[in-house]
């Protein structure tokens, strides 16, 4: 998920030989798929690949609902978005036995809450969202959400937040100890007031440059994804990823089979290809996130196993998926977000 840099990449890989074997149209996050891997897929299957990219789950949903259905074969939504898309009838069901490599899915990810029984999706990558601190600017304890929502004076005004409602709200709820889809009015009002108070400490909301502002030193604290933070640390060693005791956000991106896919057979072939350990390991080596396929260890960059960004300390709180609220509740959270950005 969420690999956003300022360079939008739209890859259109034309099969060198056998276009006759079919086509595949992917709707994907950008900078999240190594180009060599798509070339390998084309070489193995003769299927030519076209890839369009998006920069948030919500933007992808909007584009599909505004006429994108029937254009794409597969998309790569995050966990909660898989559930939303399934509820809205945008996903096709993968029949039993259709995927020959389905057994490769590791047991931990074979029956997730957002897609019971993996009827519509296969695992792509997973990771966490919290924040990173430049330890040159602050040497206190960073494993608390107070760093974002009630920061010490030396960090005030040097904080970049992700411009992403779901993740900001989820972390804020963990900070307050509230459920993510609360209908308790006192809790909602308290959450609203806490966020409005915290905003004066924040310098900016930016997802695209979440990594750059930390590396350049413009921000001392930045909300960020674990793999992005690992890449930032390679450029500036003092950047440390936090695992707050209050908890942090966990996410998984998944390849889903879309309804009305124009090339359904190609989509199934692609999903089987992405379940081959060697292939999905190539994505992890590139994006620095975890994978959900068994038997990939030997293909993984050894450095990944010991990444501080993906190995929470014992003090870390629990990781939580973003939850899907009902319409009445979600409307209030949308209003809190509007109040925050007003």
């Amino acid at each position: 998920m969420k690999l956003m840099t300022k360079t939008a990449m739209a890859l259109a890989l034309i099969a060198n030989s056998a276009a006759a074997n079919g086509e595949l149209v992917i709707y994907h996050w950008f900078e999240y798929m190594p180009a060599e891997l798509l070339e390998k897929f084309t070489a193995e299957t003769g299927i030519s690949v076209t890839m369009d990219t998006f920069d948030s789950n919500e933007a992808m949903l909007a584009s599909l609902k505004a006429g994108g259905m029937g254009t794409y074969d597969v998309a790569v939504p995050g966990d909660y978005m898989v559930a939303i898309m399934a509820n809205q009838g945008l996903l096709d069901t993968i029949a039993d036995g259709e995927l020959s490599n389905k057994g490769n899915i590791s047991p931990a990810w074979a029956d997730p809450s957002f897609d019971p029984g993996r009827k519509h999706s296969i695992p792509y990558q997973w990771g966490s969202t919290s924040f990173s601190v430049n330890t040159d600017d602050y040497d206190g304890d960073i494993n608390t959400t107070d760093i974002l929502f009630n920061p010490p004076a030396e960090l005030s005004g040097k904080i970049n937040m992700l411009d992403s409602q779901g993740e900001v709200m989820a972390l804020a709820s963990l900070h307050m100890g509230f459920p993510q889809c609360s209908s308790d009015r006192e809790q909602l009002q308290a959450l609203n007031d806490m966020l409005e108070g915290a905003k004066k400490h924040w310098a900016s909301f930016n997802s695209d440059t979440a990594r750059e502002v930390l590396v350049s030193g413009d921000a001392s604290v930045g909300m960020i994804y674990d793999g992005f933070s690992a890449k930032a640390r390679e450029e500036r060693a003092s950047i440390k990823y936090a695992f707050p005791t209050q908890g942090y956000v966990v996410w998984m991106d998944n390849v889903v089979l879309l309804n009305d896919a124009p090339n359904r057979d190609s989509a199934i072939a692609f999903m089987d290809f992405m379940l081959v350990p060697e292939n999905i390991a190539a994505v992890s080596n590139y994006a620095r996130y975890g994978l959900g396929v068994s038997g990939a260890e030997e293909y993984l960059d050894p450095a990944l196993a010991t990444l501080p960004e993906s190995n929470p300390p014992a003090t870390a709180g629990d990781g939580a998926f973003i939850e899907v609220c009902d319409q009445a509740t979600q409307t209030i959270y949308d209003q809190i977000w509007t109040n925050l950005k007003n």
Binding site: D163, W202, S204
Partner: peptide
């Protein structure tokens, strides 16, 4: 507004 203003205000 997004890039230079920090997207803090709609």
């Amino acid at each position: 507004p997004d890039l230079l203003g920090g997207a803090k205000n709609f």
